[in-house]
Design a protein around this nucleic acid. Structure first.
Lengths: 220, 220
DNA sequence: CAGCATCCGCTTTGATACTG
DNA sequence: CAGTATCAAAGCGGATGCTG
């Protein structure tokens, strides 16, 4: 990309990561860790192969990612973020958050990947009942299950094979996200989302009102 | 811009603000507040006029900014961020910070505007001596003076005409930034920078070590 | 002058095919 | 698997012109 030729740190940042696809490559590496070329292609549906190669070269040049040949048994090239590249995480976190309201309508052309949703949920979810028991929520959505683990006030989000779940939600992405963020109540959800299993009360821990007593106290 | 067609909040964000120039327009509106078309052109040297018009239309459409005709005496159109647009501030803040290490070499082609530097400094500076007296630092750099006001632990950064200054630094941008961030000591600075006026000790308040006593305590 | 729209040459991107 | 090569289409930059 042609430089903006502005002595401004935003412009200098965008000189390096402002190209089309570039921040999505960083997204993949943040969410997935070290990736093969093919993993990146799978995580970036729509990218042209030559563009991916170009971008990887530019990002390596810029010190954002590094390329290393994995040891003999694997025999492949792995791309991963450098520490400098990982410093882009706050920028990506901002974009994950800002884009949530734009995810209302999943267009027919839209591809869904579970790890993208996991990244967004990680930015948005808080356990408002930190003293509660550990709990596991599993979402069957996208191409692989998403696992939310509530423990000590934190919500860990990952994808993969779940062992056990206190609640399991199966259905299309949008109503499930709305339900988790508290923008859709279980009544509406039942008509749009598909299937609940387990104790729905656990979902209340993700919403803002810890209980009537505190709500009343805030009102007084 | 063509959509990425990915059901991911980062991709959806970039569908709206990932185009060339778009985030720099948001930068201008965050730093400057409501702007006229001409103000934006001045703050975005290098942009083609038609492109600016296109982007403003797209951003208005996306709900990021609004256009309003100022009242009669002014008779111009003002562009300003909507609340939704202001929510991009964390993203811009991230880019301001991430780009600081890229500002080493001001290339001959680079344009400098003081309000860009002000935005970067606002993200980086902290007063480590919050109980100290109020102090004003003035930077004569770029096209207009930058005023740093230390008060109660906060560092307010603005551009404009200063009233009085405890320290005044005059010179090229890079060494002045280095000096403020503590990456360049006054000895080196004197050979590269320029001109000091006033009490340089105030600059120490911007650096990490609050004093020998605390440093020793931390070591023990 | 402020706020665009049009035109044109150049660069970047997208889609697909091909290779060590 | 990890890329190149090719070429058409889209996007961008710069100049200029138009309208209140």
């Amino acid at each position: 990309m042609r430089s903006y030729d502005q002595y401004c740190s935003v412009a200098k940042s965008l000189d390096l990561v402002g190209d089309r696809w570039t921040l999505l490559i960083v997204r993949e590496l943040i969410l997935r860790g070290a990736c093969r070329y093919t993993d990146l292609r799978n995580g970036l549906p729509g990218i042209a192969s030559n563009l991916l190669a170009d971008r990887l070269r530019e990002l390596e040049q810029a010190g954002v990612l590094s390329r290393e040949d994995a040891p003999p048994p694997i025999a492949t090239t792995l791309f991963s973020l450098t520490p400098r590249g990982e410093e882009l995480e706050p920028v990506l976190a901002g974009l994950f958050r800002w884009g949530i309201p734009l995810m209302g309508d999943q267009k027919p052309a839209d591809v869904v990947k579970s790890h993208w949703l996991a990244g967004a949920l990680e930015q948005m979810l808080v356990d408002h009942q930190p003293t509660g028991p550990e709990a596991t929520i599993v979402l069957e959505v996208g191409n692989e299950p998403i696992i939310l683990e509530l423990r000590g006030g934190a919500v860990a989000v990952r994808t993969g094979r779940p062992k056990a779940a206190d609640v399991k939600l199966t259905g299309p992405p949008m109503p499930i996200i709305g339900l988790l963020l508290g923008r859709l109540d279980p009544g509406d959800a039942r008509t749009r989302v598909i299937d609940f299993q387990g104790d729905l009360a656990i979902l209340d821990r993700l919403h803002a009102s810890p209980g009537p007593a505190i709500t009343l106290a805030a009102d007084s």
